[in-house]
Write a protein that binds this DNA or RNA. Structure first.
Lengths: 198, 198
DNA sequence: CCGTGCATGTAATTCGTTACATGATTCC
DNA sequence: GGAATCATGTAACGAATTACATGCACGG
């Protein structure tokens, strides 16, 4: 358990790690998920997935499950390791930075997607709160840029910028709604500290 | 003007081409634009931009403007070539595919941003119409997937999927609004075929 | 016994990222 | 004349894309 340069996994590797955290998977199952479900906005295809699996295995974040009864070769079942869980949780719990919002929103949403079951409700709530704060700040910057520059832009340029601002605003509203949903779901499960409405 | 393998430029190269189509630029000006304006969601930094400029120059899509009075070495002014304009227009006018919407929405918005001044209003309108159609279809697919799978997903996974669907819906609404804006602006400029409301 | 789907990979290419290198202006 | 900014690049590296390679299992 030593001798790892401690390099941060790529988003694709985190995605695979997150899938493995939901239960043992084979490489082929992971390929299928990337092909057939909306998670696959993040690339797909065996050519990127199998090398990513190999890197995760080399880093000790996943391991081959003891071959159930397969002779070998075909059907290797992957299981996340303790260190893998720790790495995944560190990623999920990392602060939401301005750069994340400006240039890595997709990765933020991928992070969020894997949170339930892997981090506490408090961590999820903190993520959403911080996400909304950072998005609001970014929308402010974009709006003032648009105000200053829209007139000197070609119409389609201004409209494209508007689309970007809109989508950040929309995401901020979603974050607020998601926070409510998480809190309500949590209250229903937990011993119920307080009840407002049904 | 021969001997080019006719390979399709990358999004970054198209972005540079689009900027050059707006008027001569220096590499440094392009770097600054990527650093300081919201166009820079598409990477930035000299390390990717200068190599891209070199590739565009090698492909004959941009050329060095005859050095105005600079001795040499510093401050090379880039100008788009006729072939560059043709390549840019081909990109801007290309059909909107399902794959574009599913996995290259950012590139579609980049395309749209450069349309004014480079392609006709008809091409812009066709783009927006087709974009909305493809987005609506994709929303339909995502919604039926969500209906079938949301219950078996962890809550944050379902919420993340919802965020994705929302943002596509939002973008479809934007496309409709943008189409109106383009049409209205066009009518104001053109000899006015018909007038409905002020 | 033959094709289709299951299942796991490798190889070549290419682009982007990060970091570094270099020199010319301009401002104080 | 020294520092900041202008301005243009190169080098090392990593990772994704595309295409290809391989073999097993199973139904018809």
């Amino acid at each position: 358990m030593a001798k790892k340069p401690e390099k941060q996994p790529t988003p694709l590797e985190y995605a695979i790690l997150g899938l493995a955290a939901g239960g043992p998977q084979t490489g082929y199952e992971i390929c299928r998920l990337f092909e057939e479900t909306p998670i696959g906005v993040y690339s797909s295809s065996p050519g990127s997935i199998y090398p990513a699996i190999r890197r995760l295995r080399a880093a000790g974040l996943i391991a081959d499950a003891p071959h159930p009864d397969n002779p070998q070769g075909s059907k290797k079942v992957l299981r996340i390791t303790g260190e893998g869980v720790a790495t995944l949780r560190a990623w999920l719990g990392a602060p939401v930075s301005r750069e994340d919002v400006e240039r890595r929103m997709e990765e933020l949403m991928l992070r969020f997607a894997f949170m339930s079951g892997n981090v506490s409700r408090a961590v999820i709530a903190r993520f959403l709160t911080r996400l909304k704060t950072e998005i609001d700040a970014h929308v402010g910057r974009l709006a003032s840029y648009a105000e200053a520059a829209s007139l000197h832009m070609p119409p389609s340029g201004a409209l494209a910028l508007e689309a970007g601002i809109d989508s950040f605003r929309d995401r901020a509203r979603w974050a607020a709604r998601a926070l409510d949903a998480i809190n309500n779901a949590g209250e229903a499960e937990a011993p119920a500290k307080r009840k407002g409405a049904a």
